[in-house]
């Protein structure tokens, strides 16, 4: 390019110089881009932990899931958003696994409390998100191994613990009960052993926290043994009427007993 003189030659040299000019311009452009990109890649700070080398692979998967479903209420770094979602720093993977596997999170709508619903993420995904939160801020974790005590006295021990600590909210039948102002302690019919353990450990929403210092892991296993036995042991007296107690019993007296008897009186004797 620089060797070209000011006077123009014939058409052939003009064509060749335009092409060479263009190629040259492209090459300069490419060089400039490469220089700029290289400088940027070299000196700019890393993007938000996208490829943060400190997170384990499971946690990275979890972070990806978290970023799509959770940051609108819990914030980019799980620090919480005022008026929408609390901070998750320190809640631990147990809390995450409880909330996500029971479908409570992602929350469908703000209300008196989050309710169990069909989960959005499967168990593996929930554990990944949990791992992410665990590595982000620490907190209680569900232990490995059998969460249900298997020795023969476990059910009885668990029952005593259940009646003192749990029955007042969840009812003697583990069928749940009302709390104030629209809140409720849920039924444990669908709860898995991991969910029950995590709930005791982390105290979700209105539930008090029963940390391992207060209820040891053995005691938690006993309680889980009792709850599972409650669910598995069929009622020996016939249909349990939902195990609600006198309310449904009273309903049954009128809907079954009195209806049958009054219909019988109509059959036996006359009408006016």
């Amino acid at each position: 390019m620089s060797s070209e003189g000011p006077e123009r030659r014939g058409p052939a040299p003009r064509r060749r110089s335009r092409l060479r000019r263009r190629v040259g311009a492209a090459g300069r452009l490419l060089a400039a881009l490469a220089l700029a990109g290289g400088l940027y890649a070299g000196f700019a700070p890393g993007a938000a932990a996208e490829d943060d080398p400190q997170l384990s692979p499971a946690a990275q998967d979890g972070k990806r899931l978290f970023d799509t479903s959770c940051i609108s209420c819990h914030g980019r770094n799980a620090q919480g958003v005022e008026g929408r979602g609390p901070s998750l720093i320190g809640v631990g993977s147990a809390a995450v696994e409880f909330q996500v596997t029971s479908g409570r999170m992602p929350l469908a709508a703000q209300g008196a409390q989050a309710e169990r619903k069909p989960p959005v993420f499967n168990n593996e995904q929930a554990q990944q998100i949990g791992q992410f939160i665990q590595e982000l801020g620490g907190g209680p974790q569900i232990p490995d191994g059998d969460l249900r005590a298997r020795d023969e006295d476990a059910i009885a021990r668990g029952g005593e613990l259940f009646r003192v600590n749990c029955a007042s909210c969840h009812a003697f039948s583990s069928g749940g009960g009302a709390l104030s102002s629209g809140k409720s302690a849920p039924a444990m019919r669908e709860a898995t052993e991991r969910q029950i353990y995590a709930a005791m450990l982390t105290g979700p929403q209105s539930m008090p926290v029963f940390g391992d210092n207060q209820l040891t892991p053995e005691e938690k296993r006993d309680i889980i043994a009792y709850v599972q036995d409650l669910k598995e042991d069929k009622d020996p007296g016939g249909y349990g009427l939902g195990r609600y107690g006198p309310v449904t019993e009273g309903l049954a007296v009128f809907l079954v007993g009195m209806v049958a008897l009054v219909l019988t009186t109509l059959w036996i004797a006359g009408k006016s």
């Binding site: 029952g159 005593e160 009646r163 003192v164 029955a167 007042s168 909210c169 969840h170 009812a171 003697f172 039948s173 069928g175 749940g176 009960g177 009302a178 302690a185 409650l230 009622d235 020996p236 007296g237 016939g238 249909y239 349990g240 009427l241 195990r243 609600y244 107690g245 309310v247 019993e249 049954a252 079954v256």
Partner: peptide, 21 residues
């Protein structure tokens, strides 16, 4: 056919124990 008053589920009376409902 209809179970009533399942006392084994309530447990014995203790002053510190109560059930919802």
């Amino acid at each position: 056919l209809f179970q009533i008053n399942p006392i084994w589920l309530f447990g014995p009376y203790e002053a510190s124990v109560v059930s919802a409902a």
